[in-house]
């Protein structure tokens, strides 16, 4: 009941937090996709197996570092470079880093695992390496990359909540404030909204993933 009253009285504020949250996710994941996909294509190249292994390993370690600790590591690093150490920027940087592994790894594996017979056929018919990448490898990789993006977005919606600790805005704000001031209505409101956001984003991206899957790959 309390919760309902709180929500009812703060529609606008909650809406703003949601928008802030989404904006943070949108900016960071757009950049994460650009970096992840290009880096994934690069390390999937011939003769780059060792680089690929190192990059993927590093991205894997990245993921294990708790987000609160990563924020803690980023802050002094950013202030040493005279960049804002709290607020939007460190949050975006952290989210880009966390978004890397799923996108990077999925791009890499999808490209590496394209059936060699297809590449052979493409080469035999006179496709240039670029054409093979653009016409065969990438279209086949798109659904897998999308799955990676979906994974990254869901992870980042969670981490963006924690980014409130370093001054970012979003649905973490009511949770954080509620915990500090023992306001249960705020905690519950924040938790419900951020969970719904994650579930809806997951569902929508699943639909997008399905839409982007080439017709011939669907069963």
């Amino acid at each position: 009941m309390e919760v309902w009253n709180y929500i009812n009285g703060h529609w606008l504020t909650i809406g703003n937090w949601t928008l802030d949250h989404l904006w943070l996710i949108f900016v960071s994941n757009s950049i994460a996709v650009l970096i992840g996909v290009s880096l994934g294509i690069f390390i999937a190249g011939k003769g780059r197996e060792e680089i690929a292994d190192t990059v993927l390993y590093l991205a894997g370690i990245m993921m294990t570092i708790p987000s609160l600790a990563l924020f803690g590591l980023l802050m002094p690093a950013l202030s040493a470079m005279n960049l804002p150490a709290i607020g939007f920027l460190p949050a975006v940087i952290a989210l880009i880093l966390y978004g890397q592994l799923p996108i990077l790894r999925n791009t890499y594996t999808a490209i590496r695992e394209v059936d060699p017979a297809m590449i052979e056929a493409g080469r035999g018919m006179g496709m240039t390496p670029r054409q093979i990448l653009v016409k065969i490898k990438l279209p086949l990789a798109v659904p897998v990359i999308m799955a990676g993006l979906r994974n990254a977005v869901v992870i980042n919606i969670g981490i963006a909540t924690i980014a409130v600790f370093i001054g970012a805005r979003g649905l973490g704000v009511p949770i954080f404030r509620g915990l500090r001031t023992s306001r249960m209505d705020m905690i519950i409101t924040g938790a419900i909204f951020v969970s719904m956001l994650a579930l809806i984003a997951d569902g929508l991206l699943a639909i997008a993933e399905n839409k982007l899957t080439p017709e011939g790959l669907k069963r």
Partner: peptide
């Protein structure tokens, strides 16, 4: 080499049809 290959038909045991393309688009590759 690419021009050369486009003027030489190429069929292999594994076939290597492109699964994301229709039969028509596969045939129309070259």
């Amino acid at each position: 080499e690419n021009e050369l290959r486009r003027d030489i038909g190429y069929a292999i045991q594994e076939i290597g049809l492109f699964p994301h393309m229709t039969v028509k688009d596969n045939i129309a590759t070259v």
